[in-house]
Amino acid sequence: MDTHPHERLARSAHDRLHAHRDDEDWLDSRWRDPETRTLVIAGNRVRLDDGRIDWIHPKAAPDGTRLLLGESDGRTCFAVILDAAPDHQAATEEWVPLRGLLPALAGATGDGEAPLVLHALGMAEWLHATRYCPRCGGPLSPRSSGHQLVCSDGHPQFPRTDPAVIMLITSGDPGSAEERCLLGRQRVWPEGRFSTLAGFCEPGESLENAVRREVAEEVGVLVGEVSYFGNQPWPLPASLMLGFTGRASSTEIRVDDDEIAEARWITRAELREAAESGEIQLPGAVSISRSLIESWYGAPLPGSW
């Protein structure tokens, strides 16, 4: 059983079979194996079949960039990366981006499916965004089963993951009825949609200081003690969400009016009432933001985006 719901997206990591990425004979034999399955990714979208992620045999896959994902439950898994969903398929088949896949991943019967899908989507985003060599400007070609890109001058490029901090900040006596947590609404979100604050770690910065800086920049609240909570892969497009809790050393809110449109302190009782009435919509169950909020609250809360 998961300690927190967000861990469903990272359970039972697959063997990525790194040693076989350049072994073309081995790759071809696995590609022909009747037990092998592949996931077709069109742009950044995956097809759902009756609400389930559609894994097919490689011989049924269209031409595209072949990506070795690895082995899970004794079965070799690949992805085929297409530039975009074909127009004739888009009208008749359900191609959805990662956010639309979250319910299917949360309810997946196979423990290893979510890490495979996140691996595939993260690589698809990287391959789509990384077209030219940053050193010489030349076009890049895939190598190592899609896990490396190389230009004609031989400069290799590898996938990158951006560390992002996401944090629940609290104020007041811990565990008391008066203790409050800090939630914010991004300017691009509709009224009533709230979440924890988040932001990217900058060069030369510790994760704890990134928490303090982001909170101060976005809502003007100063943070003292910071504690690690957990992490979650989040290829939207290439992030690792690192969760923290923090204790506020000031409580006056001054939103930046750029990223954040609204922020508020809220007690557990107020949060429950607002979630039940729909005044506040919280993030989905598999997000680490939801886990941070419900861990502080002490129980599941109703409603979600």
Score class of each variant (00 low, 15 high):
residue 243 G to F: 08
residue 77 C to R: 15
residue 41 I to P: 04
residue 256 D to Y: 03
residue 163 P to D: 11
residue 70 G to M: 10
residue 179 E to V: 02
residue 258 D to V: 12
residue 143 R to W: 06
residue 45 R to H: 09
residue 261 A to I: 01
residue 227 S to D: 13
residue 170 T to A: 14
residue 232 Q to L: 11
residue 246 G to D: 10
residue 29 S to Q: 12
residue 75 R to Q: 14
residue 49 D to K: 03
residue 62 P to Q: 09
residue 91 A to Y: 04
residue 71 E to G: 01
residue 225 E to F: 05
residue 74 G to S: 10
residue 152 S to G: 09
residue 11 R to C: 14
residue 109 T to C: 01
residue 165 V to N: 10
residue 17 L to N: 08
residue 225 E to A: 13
residue 220 G to H: 01
residue 230 G to Y: 07
residue 5 P to V: 04
residue 192 G to I: 07
residue 245 T to E: 07
residue 132 Y to V: 01
residue 122 G to H: 06
residue 239 S to L: 15
residue 198 A to E: 05
residue 247 R to V: 13
residue 186 Q to M: 07
residue 253 I to R: 03
residue 298 G to N: 07
residue 270 E to F: 00
residue 59 K to G: 02
residue 300 P to S: 02
residue 271 L to P: 12
residue 294 E to R: 10
residue 22 D to Q: 12
residue 187 R to S: 11
residue 6 H to W: 09
residue 94 E to G: 00
residue 66 R to C: 02
residue 102 L to N: 00
residue 188 V to K: 11
residue 9 L to W: 07
residue 114 A to D: 03
residue 265 W to L: 02
residue 21 R to M: 01
residue 169 I to L: 10
residue 105 L to F: 09
residue 249 S to H: 01
residue 138 G to Y: 10
residue 249 S to P: 00
residue 70 G to P: 11
residue 229 F to C: 06
residue 293 I to Q: 04
residue 193 R to A: 11
residue 3 T to C: 07
residue 279 E to Y: 00
residue 164 A to K: 08
residue 81 I to M: 12
residue 279 E to M: 05
residue 160 R to P: 00
residue 49 D to P: 00
residue 149 L to N: 03
residue 26 W to R: 13
residue 236 L to I: 11
